[in-house]
Design a protein around this nucleic acid. Structure first.
Lengths: 173, 173
DNA sequence: GACAATGGCTAACGTCGTTAGCCACGACCC
DNA sequence: GGGTCGTGGCTAACGACGTTAGCCATTGTC
């Protein structure tokens, strides 16, 4: 995929991702990132103009992998909204820090590979047979559910599976 | 409400809120906050143990005002899920930075006034007649919709009113 | 063998949250 | 009225952050 990056830049992004997923966004620091690679922080700027550019690559990974997860769900259960939703939620909950990073700020659309955002959205659009309003409502529900889960906003004893199925049922499964 | 704070501490929280709502979280800095009050940053620590404690007060304001908005909607249209949802969305979109601050991290439950979280949740629970799963699904949809809007994640030409109504309709209005 | 590109380095700057320690003022008590 | 103490300011400074400037070794190319 990203041959818009040099091999060394890819190594940096890999390390950044490990750091983010293992320790959360507060630990994703130019200095700790450099440490993990055995170099000093200023050397990172030979490969990326700033920290934001590294984060953009992580967001691109999130979008790419989300698209892949949705496409796989579509392939094994064509037309099933429930399968799509399950794949979306599973992927997000498996990568909570990455999901938050890519989701809780405006999309850096101009800096992302062309077509990537659309690719991630297409399986849902297909399953909704082009009904844009339904697709957006569906996405909002899934995204809301997942972020509230990730941030521990529901009561500790809440039955989230039941709430999830209830929402899916109401929205057309 | 917060007489757990001294008058001076209340002034600080007021200034912090203005700063946050006017200029976003990046401008909510101990130094700029002190500036706005005509004092120096270290003086703030005579009133709050750390920045987090100031933010907790802002989160408490968010929860209180959300509860008030929902209670008002309930009073003027008892039992209407649609009215509740509208009040929730309107309030959130009117205070996007505050909403994000209070929503995109774990709730500091231990530091919030007792019962506040429950108070904010109660109108929805009443309107759902105690159906917890429905209430949670409903909340997830509203929250997801609002955060995606706030962060500009939908396409610029998306008809969000239509998506909103579609979700509300599916979820029981 | 000169030369440029590549990719490291150290030193430093400005900003952040925060701490230590000092001081002015007012309230209160004897 | 004079000592005492809490309240709420202050300056100076620390360590961590993102980032810049400028130096240097290695490598590959004509």
């Amino acid at each position: 995929m990203a041959d818009r990056l040099t091999p060394r830049a890819r190594e940096i992004v890999t390390a950044a991702r490990e750091l983010l997923e293992e320790s959360g966004p507060a630990q994703l620091t130019m200095r700790t990132l450099a440490d993990r690679l055995g170099i000093k922080a200023p050397s990172l700027y030979k490969h990326f103009p700033d920290k934001h550019a590294v984060e953009v690559e992580l967001v691109a990974q999130l979008l790419t992998e989300t698209a892949e997860a949705l496409e796989a769900a579509e392939a094994s259960a064509p037309g099933s909204l429930e399968a799509l939703a399950g794949a979306y939620r599973s992927y997000a909950l498996a990568h909570p820090h990455l999901y938050s990073l890519g989701t809780e700020r405006p999309l850096p659309r101009a800096e992302l590979p062309a077509g990537l955002e659309d690719r991630a959205a297409l399986p849902l659009l297909r399953a909704c047979a082009g009904d844009l309003d339904l697709a957006r409502a569906f996405w909002a529900f899934a995204h809301g559910m997942v972020t509230l889960e990730i941030h521990g906003r529901f009561p500790a004893d809440a039955d989230l599976e039941a709430a999830w199925k209830r929402g899916l049922g109401a929205l057309g499964t």
